[in-house]
Amino acid sequence: MAIFEVDKLSLHYLTRFGQKIHAVTDVSFTMEQGEILGIAGESGCGKSTLVNGLMGLFIPPLYPTSGDVRVGGESLMNRSPEDVRANILSRKVSMIPQGAFNALNPTRKVKDIAADVMAAHIKGVDKKQIYERLKERFDLFGMDTNKVLNSHPIQLTAGERQRSVIGISTLLNPQMVIADEPTSALDVTTQKVVIKMIFDLLEKGIFSTMIFITHELPLLRHVANNIAIMYAGEIVEKGTAEQVVFDPRHPYTKALMGAMLSAEPGQKQRKPTAIEGAPPNLANPITGCRFAERCPQAKPECKQNKQEIRIVGDRQVRCDYAE
């Protein structure tokens, strides 16, 4: 059974003037046990909004328009905020945020933050048990557990902080972990350590599935099993990592890969190309393909006809003319 199912999820924002911004439209995918799905796209494509939606965190002005999200068969929609807080967050779906140094409360020790998470979800556990559990878990991370647990965030290195955040996020063994640019602000060596830790945890069964969001496509290729490319709130292509990176079919994906500098074998002689223009304003209703304005292969019909997902070459592509 699929661990995580997203079924035609659409999300919108309400602006101060009552305008609806359709930030995410018709997103669907499923994930199996042990799968890592990478989501990539430019800034403003709706990744962060999607993340909130995938966790069931609908804090105004964000609202679900339609669709469903299911973790282990249970739907996340139509729940009270308290229900989401107590049962979903950290337990079924958990988030590893960008920029760990700011994510940790600067005036609280790591062990206290972690204890707070446990206390918020598990009833009747006493302090001693909490700390033992913490020690057990943090011992798996390859850091000096005592030092890290008893320190304030300011006393730790960036790598230690990021790993602490990962540890705290996965403390309650959630089924699905969403990592939002977890390595963006780190140097390459630390990046490797963090990635290794993530794989370790996956292997040990601490969590079952992961969504890895980043704009660094080369990284995704090494980390993810499948990759979904987002543009203007929609998924425009989804396939295996190999397929999307080396054999993109959607014009946008092709442009993205072309815009990458890559040291991969066979890619060195390709010149990087920039994609002109900017994503469309999602407040206005959009007819036709959202990428049509910037697409190098656009045909006049593209602007009229709404593009649906087709299967092209074993992967999903949202373009009538891709092959």
Binding site: R85, S90, P97, N102, L104, R108, V117, A120
Partner: peptide
């Protein structure tokens, strides 16, 4: 960010307020 993260982690509202 840390308040956002606290919300994401599902911490109780009272706890977030003390933070």
């Amino acid at each position: 960010d840390y308040i956002k993260y606290a919300k994401w982690l599902g911490l109780k509202e009272g706890k977030i307020l003390t933070y």
